[in-house]
Design a protein around this nucleic acid. Structure first.
Lengths: 310, 310
DNA sequence: GTCATGCATAAATTTCCCTTATGCATAGAT
DNA sequence: ATCTATGCATAAGGGAAATTTATGCATGAC
């Protein structure tokens, strides 16, 4: 098992030379000079202790042992190439997107069909993660995340500012005679009162001491679920208006106040490891996401390189 | 066919790591540090554009694509190792000796049996070359040659001085009333009168102008053949006494004069390319040759490295 | 909590691979 | 026969890439 192979570069040179029966042509194939191939073959012969080529005057021939070697070596390299080809084909045809549930449900799900129509050769696999999980940066080709900064070295494109403001079903607002001041909100059930967004928003609204403890803790963890509860009239939720556009347009939810807050460093962003910089499928996906956002009037900055890991 | 493989060193690291599922152990196997393996795997992943290992906390696992790769890569390397193992086994078990015909016939042939008895695991193949051919330095594991200096870089052991003196069958000498002076030789048919040894010897014997043109040119090219003609009484030949010891002892040939000449730089020598410096079979053969010569009272100097090619 | 294990990373070093430039031999052409 | 073109060998030098050393970090085991 643990036979020490000669230097692999020498084996590779031999493989090519044995197919071409020419150092010059082998060099061409490998992108090397003839001298480099000659050097590697000599190296191989010294390691092996016998000649693999017979040097005729203007050509070379495999020696008996060289021919024996060539057979197996060519096969082995063929297997290698096939293996890498196969796995790269497999890779090119499957795009793994990791996204948090909110974005997956509110944004990706309804649009993915359009991407698949545009790129029928790419199978998309969506790996969503809940709000208490970390994004699976290393298991996905591309990740859409909020709150969690991608690993150092990743490429990063901010997509959507993570703005938030209370949203509520119109019937519910009417039920308490309309919502006119931020304090009115406290008359209603607060959906997910532990969400730090509430604290931030109430502070910005001039009520830093609003008592949010009287409602049961029930982190849904996903804006999709919270939005559904709000639409159902179960209370007031603090949500990102962009993700509720449809409900807002259709009057299922209303935004009582213009005050929209944003947490520093919390915004949805697309990111991917640097190795995917030239990946076709990632490029296509990124372009598609950006263009979809553009259709909603949102414009994304250029990709930037994440430099720090904090 | 011409898919560009990732760096082979990275593939090799991956191959070992995929078997051990451990960078540390892979490093041990390859004689590298853990850091080197880690580096190579990272390199591979960047070239490929996807991860091949999942980093768990104190272990690593192949990713889906990694597992796909591993299968083929391990197989390919296994094929490589097998191939090299086979050809090295074949190499170890066959010793190719290139020798000129004279030495092969007069020395090797009768003794080879003893070598084969001592080394039953080594099959000897003798490639002899005629006097007008060059030694096949590069086709043989070890070469015994005279006159032709081995290629630069070869290891070289002088074996037998290429001395020469006229030898003749006793009946033939008697036929002309005995041979008393060098000039007497000219009364007899000269076997291979074009051999430059004749010129050298007659000059040394004080007859620089001896007319050797009256006999037909008939280079036998091999002392064995010339010796046989001399023994048969067809003429006088210029031969190396050592190679005719038996005939001299048995009285089939006599040496009329003590004058023995030697051409500069013409002596039988054993040589082999530097790559065989540590070859077991070559070492065994060399030791055997030297010991056989020792039994004849000849002692060989140490091997020297040929430094010039002239 | 402490220690041990295993991988990641950075910087420095070394190795060795490759190129350039040249030589040599010879097959093929004139 | 001579000349030219082709193909491999070799030496020297440069430089990229592989490796080591020295860390850090996370976590599982005790």
């Amino acid at each position: 098992m643990t036979l020490n192979l000669p230097p692999l570069s020498a084996i590779r040179a031999f493989e090519a030379a044995s197919r071409h029966l020419s150092f010059t042509k082998a060099g061409d194939e490998l992108g090397l000079t003839q001298a480099a191939v000659s050097y590697q073959i000599k190296l191989l012969e010294e390691k092996l202790g016998f000649a693999v080529f017979e040097r005729k005057t203007r050509k070379i021939d495999l020696t008996q042992k060289g021919a024996l070697l060539a057979e197996g070596v060519v096969e082995a390299f063929s297997r290698l190439r096939q293996t890498f080809q196969d796995v790269q084909d497999a890779d090119a045809s499957e795009l793994v997107v990791s996204s948090n549930t909110t974005f997956a449900v509110n944004w990706l799900a309804s649009r993915m069909f359009s991407f698949q129509m545009q790129n029928p050769d790419i199978a998309v696999r969506l790996v969503s993660y809940g709000p208490w999980e970390k994004p699976k940066f290393d298991q996905a080709d591309v990740t859409i995340s909020a709150c969690y900064p991608p690993p150092k070295g990743n490429l990063f494109i901010p997509l959507i500012a993570a703005e938030f403001t209370p949203l509520v079903a119109p019937q519910l607002a009417q039920g308490i005679g309309g919502i006119n001041t931020p304090a009115d909100l406290l008359k209603l059930p607060i959906i997910d009162p532990d969400d730090p967004w509430w604290r931030t928003w109430f502070s910005a609204a001039g009520l830093p001491d609003a008592d949010l403890t009287k409602w049961p803790t029930s982190r849904m963890g996903s804006q999709a679920l919270e939005a559904n509860r709000a639409i159902a009239g179960q209370g007031v939720a603090i949500l990102t208006p962009y993700f509720c556009r449809q409900a807002l347009q259709q009057g299922q939810l209303i935004q009582p106040f213009d005050l929209v807050c944003a947490e520093e460093d919390e915004s949805w962003a697309l990111s991917y490891p640097p190795r995917n910089k030239n990946s076709r499928k990632v490029r296509l996906f990124q372009d598609w996401v950006v263009s979809e956002l553009g259709r909603d009037g949102l414009h994304c900055p250029e990709a930037v390189l994440i430099g720090s890991d904090d």
